[in-house]
C-alpha cells in the first residue's frame, strides 16, 4: 500500500468530479463521449489508481533496478 485506505477512498471519490467535468471539457474540443464511454474511462482511471495504490512500495526499487 502506498497510501492509507482512507486516503485511497478519498482519491477515488475525487475522481468523480474529474471524470464528470472531463466529459464536459472534452466536448468543447469536439470530443463527445457517451455515458458508457465516460463510465469505462472512469473505471479505467479507478483501476489505474488502485494498481498504483496497491503496488508494494518496497517493490518499487526492485522494479527500477530490473
Amino acid at each position: 500500500m502506498r497510501i492509507s485506505k482512507g486516503g485511497l477512498l478519498v482519491i477515488m471519490a475525487f475522481l468523480t468530479p474529474l471524470i464528470v467535468e472531463l466529459r464536459t471539457v472534452l466536448s468543447w474540443f469536439g470530443i463527445r463521449l457517451s455515458v458508457v464511454e465516460t463510465g469505462a474511462l472512469g473505471l479505467a482511471l479507478i483501476g489505474a489508481v488502485l494498481i498504483w495504490a496497491l503496488w508494494p512500495s518496497n517493490g518499487g526499487t526492485e522494479a527500477k533496478l530490473a
Binding site: I3, G6, G7, L9, V10, A13, P17
Partner: peptide, 23 residues
Amino acid sequence: LKALPWRDPAFTGMALAGLMFAA
C-alpha cells in the same frame, strides 16, 4: 496531503466540504 488523517470522518468530511466550497 497523504499524511492527513483521511480515515477520520470528522476530518475528511470537513476537508471535502471545504473543497466543494471552493467550487
